[in-house]
Design a protein around this nucleic acid. Structure first.
Lengths: 138, 138
DNA sequence: ACAAGTATGCACCTTTTGGTAAGTGCCTAA
DNA sequence: TTAGGCACTTACCAAAAGGTGCATACTTGT
């Protein structure tokens, strides 16, 4: 028995509109930046918009704002607008958001632990990607 | 200065091409079906293509095949082709894939635990979505 | 006066993603 | 003979995701 399905994890099938709990979660955190935002907020505590923005490089204003809005609407983060003269706003996790951030920790750990393999994977992907673009030799 | 990161979780910043471990992981499992596939394989052991297909309703051949291909190329699942007359192929997790599946467990748990909230979230999303489509009343 | 920073909003556009439908080759059941 | 299942493959398309850049309203710094 080389592979023994260890034990049935809590992936209850036949839920309302979801395939399973994982499916439900994934739909909530779908979006290029949401998990990162959650995780970021989980580490630094309440954070101002600009800080977040600078911390997560490669994110555009539009995207960050949009994702923050959704997370807020979904009750995962709380937005505080101090209604000051130069605008000041900060974002913090709600309890719900915090619990989700906790659930993300193993993924982060996995990524760090297997960074070597992941890096190789991406090297391969990009290699084949560029091969497709230039069918003719270098 | 004012902001003290409480304790540094395993989200090592300044990695090769990734923001952090979480970022790395997310890029590997990006794709509407990948986490589900991994999770599914983690539960059921080696599975034939058709079984997977039927189990994950709402997935098209194109998508399932494509994602399985990528997962295979990325070393997360192993494809076994029995080269039989009516084609027979099955898929199983590699050790790497298995470890990633483990890391997904908390997400699944979160989803099941917070199913009520998640469901509400989606109800709200769809409500506002339809409101946008039909600016004028129902 | 002018640039810059603050937190957004908005219009426009490209890229990516995902879906549909058809086809392939081979075999079995009716 | 026709139908259907298997495990895909391909071409074509629509929708979603995401990016750029400009605008806002106000203040501070030069």
């Amino acid at each position: 028995m080389s592979k023994t399905p260890p034990q049935a994890p809590p992936c209850t099938p036949t839920l309302p509109g979801f395939t399973c709990g994982l499916d439900a979660t994934l739909r909530v955190v779908a979006g290029k930046w949401k998990p990162l935002i959650l995780y970021f907020l989980a580490q630094g505590g309440p954070t101002r918009y600009g800080e977040l923005r600078r911390a997560m490089r490669d994110v555009s204003d539009k995207m960050l704002i949009q994702q923050l809005k959704e997370l807020t609407a979904d009750g995962l983060v709380k937005r505080t607008d101090y209604r000051e003269v130069p605008p000041r706003v900060d974002y913090a996790l709600t309890p719900l958001g915090e619990s989700l951030a906790q659930a993300l920790v193993p993924l982060c750990t996995w990524g760090t632990d297997n960074l070597a393999e992941v890096t190789r994977v991406f090297a391969r992907r990009e290699a084949s990607a560029s091969r497709e673009e230039r069918p003719a030799s270098e």
